[in-house]
Each structure stands twice: as C-alpha cells, then as structure tokens.
Amino acid sequence: MKKNKMRPYLVQLCFFLSLLCCIKAPYCADYPNKPIKLVVPFSPGGGNDSVARVVAAKLTEKLGQQVFIDNKPGAGGTLGADFSAKSPADGYTIFLGGIGSLAINPVFNKSLPYHPTKDFEPIILLAEAPLIVVATPKLPVNSIQQLTEYMKTHPTQINYASNGNGSSAQLAAMMYESMANVKMVHVPYKGLAPALSDLLSGQVQIMFSSMVAIAPIVTSNRLKALAVTSKKRSSAFPQIPTMVEAGFPEYSTGSWYGLLAPAGTPLDIILKINRAANSCLQDPSVKEQLLKEGAEPIGGTSQQFKKYIQSELDKTLYLFNQQKLDVSN
C-alpha cells in the first residue's frame, strides 16, 4: 500500500530531474553560439595584448566563433580584472589574467574590488616569459653591474618606466632596488606602448619589460639589453646574461598569461575552452609565434592553473614580507 502511495511522487521526481537535464544540456551543448569577448587589462601593443591576439586567432578556428579582444587598461590591470569578474558567468566573457592582476595587486592592494581566486574560474595557463632589462642608448651603461655602480654615484637620477602600478615590471624593478640597495624613480604608464615611446626617446632610462612585446626592438638594437630576469638564459636571446650572472643569485621573476572566466561559469564550458586552448598551443604556428617573442607555451588543466595562481600569490606574499616591497608609488 505504501509503495503505491510513493509511486506518484517518484514519477514526479524523475520527471523533474529529467527536465533539469534537458534544460541544462542544450545551454552548454551548443556553446559557443555567438562571439566571445577576451578582456585584456592593458592597452594594445604590450606583452599581454600580443599573447592574447596570437591565441584568440587560433581559438576562433577551434571554437567556431570569433574570439575578439577587448582592451580595458587601467590601474595595473585592476579595471579589466574587475570588469571580467563581474561579467555574466556564461562563457562569453573570458579574461587574460597574469601576475599583475592575480598575484601582485591582490597582495599589495587590500582594497581590490575583486578576489583573485574566489571571483574567477581558471581555464588554462597559456605561456610564461621572462622580463628583459633594457636601457636607453643615452645611458652610459652596458650591464647590470655598471648600472648598479652608476646609480650609487648618481642616486635617484634614474627613472624607470612600467606599464602601471602593480605590474610585473614594477615588481621586478623593486626586487632589483632591494637586492642592489639602490633607488630609482618609478614612472608608471597606462600600458607598454607609451612607456616604450618615452624609453626610446630618452625621457626615462630603464625598463624591466615583458620580453614578448619588446623582442623586435631589442633585435633591432634600438635599446640596450642588460639582462633577463629568469634563472636561465632565454632561448630567444641566449646572448643576454641573467640577473643571477650579474651577481643576484636569488633574483628570479617574470610574466605569465592565462585564461579565466567569471566564477560560476559551468564546468563543461571551462573544459571546452581548455581543450580548445590546449589544441591551440600545440599548433606549430602558434608555438612559433610565441617562442619567437620569448614566451614559452605551457597549457595543462584548469586545476593545474588554479594551483599555479595560488603558488604565485604565495611567492609574491613572501617577497612582500621579506623585501618589504611597496607598489603604491
């Protein structure tokens, strides 16, 4: 008797569950069915923008819908990150995150309008690249050792450019200042392009720049390359020594680039973009373009990228405490 009374409820429950499956399945099964916005939190012409455009072009082929770039520069990547975090979690807005927006700003700026891990779903780590220390030809130094000696005899006379407060360029410069016991004047710009313009004209003397964006200028010898910030020499510029070789054994930093979506984006959409992006990074033309500009393609799972972001946060916090760094100026 009890079985008969329960049967209508069981039938209704099964119907309800099947209805939920039917509602959700088409939502993700036909994804994407319209263009996808890839937010880059810096202006055109920088390393972030270069990596984004290389990947977006091939991702368009893989996903069957246009992936277009939306540059939203400002506040060292904060404006673009905040916009992306607050976008609909439907897979049609994705974010190109990096060390600035996801590891530096969260450590140095306690009033950020977004949280680097709670407000995003990591998709994939696209690439890593060392920074390169470049100087205007007008500066009478040709190595990091000479730069250090010059600054000790010309205190606070060196201006260094960066693509904004909280950028990887500023963090790299501050690490050098702390380890070399020297002081430079920070001049932040809204993106790499205007910073490079002033560096080339001699308005500023030094920059710790993303190798991805500056490679053609270094190749043409329009700027003097003093060092790379990785532990080992770059395969793109094997002739340029490392900061370690220059006498700073603990010095190591760089840029990295990854795709993220707003928190709450369905897992199957995350996985679909991840598979497509991994396929892009295996494409010979994409590999060649990234490597030529000094970026090493990485790839992997969304969970691996999630752990990577946390490790970068932990490393930046350690530097913050050990070196007493401050990116507020």
Rank of each mutant, 00 (worst) to 15 (best):
P194K: 04
P194W: 11
A195E: 12
A195M: 12
S197F: 13
S197W: 13
L199E: 14
L200K: 10
G202D: 14
Q203T: 14
V204E: 13
Q205E: 15
I206A: 10
I206E: 12
I206M: 14
F208H: 07
S210R: 04
S210N: 08
A213N: 01
A215K: 03
A215C: 07
P216A: 06
I217N: 07
V218K: 03
T219P: 08
T219E: 10
R222G: 10
L223Y: 01
L223I: 13
A225Q: 01
L226F: 04
L226W: 01
A227L: 05
T229H: 00
K231P: 05
K232W: 10
S235C: 04
S235F: 03
S235Q: 07
A236D: 08
A236N: 12
A236K: 09
Q239H: 08
Q239L: 05
I240G: 00
I240R: 01
M243L: 12
E245R: 03
A246V: 14
A246E: 05
G247R: 04
P249N: 04
E250M: 13
Y251T: 09
Y251E: 08
Y251L: 11
Y251C: 09
S252Y: 04
T253W: 01
G254V: 00
S255Q: 08
G258D: 07
G258V: 07
L259G: 06
L260T: 13
A261H: 15
A261W: 15
A263I: 10
A263H: 07
A263D: 08
